[in-house]
Structure formats: structure tokens, C-alpha cells
Nucleic acid binder design. Structure first.
Lengths: 193, 193
DNA sequence: TCCTCTCGTTCACTTAAGTTAAGAAATGCA
DNA sequence: TGCATTTCTTAACTTAAGTGAACGAGAGGA
């Protein structure tokens, strides 16, 4: 399992034995059960996550309805906005499946980064990349209809459609579960003809 | 004008005289006229922008229609995704008003950052902040209706409604110009009663 | 095993956005 | 100033999403 993390980091920087040992010694790996809530609305937290196996989702509770806004799967990293802004969280994070994660808190990162400035550079590159990627996702969302978004999702993240309940996908696509159900029926109808 | 940039950088790191001189000597400041296109679809570019005065927008040309996805105003920075991915740009950047900008290219940044590692840290913090902010914007967009988005915009960026043509605001809100016009009429109607 | 709760689907109805078109208002330019 | 172009608004009609409700299938717990 560790080598997944190693491969991920290696995409950004090359690691010496010493640096890698420093990471391993932090004992970041955690196994968590499906349904576990990692972060609740109103909580303060300094934890960032990296998914080695499984799937987690972020959602807001608005009018006692869950609004899912993002899914994170294998080889993806998540630093919740509340960690950056140092304010109570506006959303929940929960495990869609049994997961193996690394959990690192920002104090640890400050310490490691001051010892190995290389990690600072990795974090910079990683956030710049994520920022650009998220910008493109946002732009695609804005410029397309729910149906196009769904078709786009089938192309880009087909696994999500299998592993995630449909009502969670719906709010991820910005619509209601009933609308997603109808939209899917509409697409099947078109395919038949 | 320079002190705007100085104040911005000072929010993230403290600058020595030498560091500040290094930045000034790069001669980054540019004046550009309203309507100027800074980046075109298909172009490769290494330029990042910081707005000292004015407003720029990013837009896609889809089915020969402009789809505006973002506006950047005073004290905001933009590194286009194509600079990060090193691929041709998918969108256009154009000036909504006469602007005063800094234009820096990524080669220069690499050079400055290697001379002053402090800048690397600033870039990391800045991208982490922007990533978190953009995540929240995206989430708000997903979880609200066009009308809520418009009301939200009035609260958060009232200046945009004054300085930007409505048909550009419309696609920024994810709808057609006619729908924005109707939606505004609907809100006025409600206010009256 | 039975019961309950969740999830997905369907339906009828409402509401709002997309579309097409026309005209008024504002803007820019000669 | 006058003309052309762009921008905004309005309207009628179409299409799709929101809403409320009902139903069946399936999962999980007692």
C-alpha cells in the first residue's frame, strides 16, 4: 500500500531514502469503514487526506438535505477549505466505501516542510495543478446542461457511476435524484432509436 | 501603482529591500486597452497575470458563442490552466476595461524562485488559498439555482454587476442572457410586492 | 423470517430556463 | 450628428428541471 503513496509523490519530486523514511515514520496510514464520517459541519480540523483505496465524498447539509459536491478516489488528495481558512467546516466528509487513507495534519506538514524544503515545492506544484484542473471542471460545469454533465461523467469517471448511489451523483451534477432518473431514461430512449 | 503589488505580496511573505528590488527590476507592469485579447484559444503561453487596475475575463468560444466563466479584478491573480498543463489554451482572456497588469512568465518565476525560495512558499500558500476559495465557489454554484446565484453575486461582487455587460454575466451564472433579463425582472417584481 | 428504511423509478403537475424573434435602448464610430 | 452595431428587454412557445406523491426492489437489522 505504501508504494502507492511513493509513486504519487515521485510524480512531483524525487525522494532520497532519508526523506521517504521521514514520511513513513509519521505513521499516516488509516483504515476506515464505509459510512465513517471524517469531518462534520462546524468542526475545526487540520487534517488532509490522500486516498490509497476507496472513495470519500464531501457534502453540505442544506434544509436537512445532503448536497454532495465532490468525490475523491484512488490517488487523489483532499485538503478541506476549513484547514486553509482555519474556520469551522461548512461541510461533511464521509466514506462511500471502506477506505485506506493517509491522514496528515497541517502542523506535521509545517514541520516536514521546514526540514525538507523539497516538500514545499511538491505542495506548490500539486496545488497549482489541482487549481487548474478544478478550474476546468468548474468551467465545464458552467457551460453545460445536466444531461451533458452526466454524459461527460460517463466518459471521464465511469467508475463513479458504479460505486456511488445515484442520489449522491444527482447533487454532484447539480440536480435532484428524480431528475437524474428521468434524464437517464431519456438517454436510454435516444440510444434505442 | 507598484505599492499595490507590494501590499499584495506582503500579505503572504515579508520582503527585504533586495527581494523587492529583484521584482521591480523584472519590469512586469503593463497598460492594456479595453477589448485587448491577452490570450487566444489554441495559443501556448507561459504568462500569468495580476490585476492592479481594471477587469479581465476568461471565455470559451463554443458553437460560435462566448461563454464567460470567470472575471478577475483588482488584487486578483490568474495563471491560466494552459500554463500549468503546457498545452494550447482552451479559452480566451480579454480585457473588460482598460487595465494595469503585471505580466510574468513561468521561466522568470522559476528563476526568481530559485534565487529566493521564499517566493516558492508564497506561491504555495497563494495557490492553496485560491484552491480552497474556488472550491467553495464551485460548491455554491452547484447547490444553488440561477436566481440564488445572481442574488449571491449582488452580495459578494456588486461591482461586477456595474462594470460587466449583462450577457457576459449571464454565462458566468450558467444561463442565457434572456434568462438573466427575465430573472432580474422577476426579482424586481417580488421586491415591489 | 419479517419488518423497516433506503433507494430508485415513475407520474402528474408546476416552475423556470432555452429558443426564436422582434423591437427598444445604448454605444461606438465615421 | 447620424448610422450601424451591440446590448438589453419582452413575448410566445418549447423543453427540461423541481415538487410531491406513490410504488416496488433491495439491504440491513431485530
Amino acid at each position: 500500500m505504501q508504494n502507492i503513496l511513493f509513486d504519487f509523490i515521485s510524480k512531483y519530486i524525487s525522494l532520497t531514502e532519508e526523506e521517504w523514511n521521514a514520511i513513513v515514520s509519521l505513521d499516516l496510514f488509516r483504515s476506515v469503514k464505509k459510512g465513517t464520517i471524517l469531518l462534520k459541519e462546524g468542526q475545526k480540523s487540520k487534517d488532509s487526506y490522500f486516498i490509497l483505496k476507496g472513495c470519500i465524498r464531501t457534502y453540505y447539509l442544506l434544509d436537512s438535505e445532503e448536497k454532495t459536491t465532490a468525490f475523491y478516489t484512488e490517488m487523489e488528495a483532499l485538503t478541506p477549505p476549513c484547514v486553509i481558512s482555519k474556520t469551522p467546516s461548512e461541510y461533511y466528509i464521509s466514506c462511500v466505501e471502506d477506505c485506506i487513507l493517509t491522514v496528515s495534519n497541517s502542523d506535521m506538514e509545517v514541520e516536514v516542510n521546514s526540514k525538507f524544503p523539497k516538500f514545499d515545492i511538491m505542495c506548490r506544484i500539486l496545488s497549482e495543478e489541482l487549481l487548474a484542473k478544478q478550474r476546468i471542471d468548474f468551467d465545464e460545469f458552467k457551460t453545460s446542461s445536466p444531461e451533458q454533465r452526466y454524459l461527460n461523467l460517463i466518459q471521464k469517471r465511469p467508475d463513479l457511476i458504479q460505486r456511488v448511489p445515484q442520489h449522491q451523483l444527482a447533487s454532484y451534477l447539480g440536480i435532484k435524484p428524480q431528475s437524474l432518473s428521468r434524464l437517464r431514461a431519456r438517454i436510454l430512449e435516444k440510444d434505442r432509436s
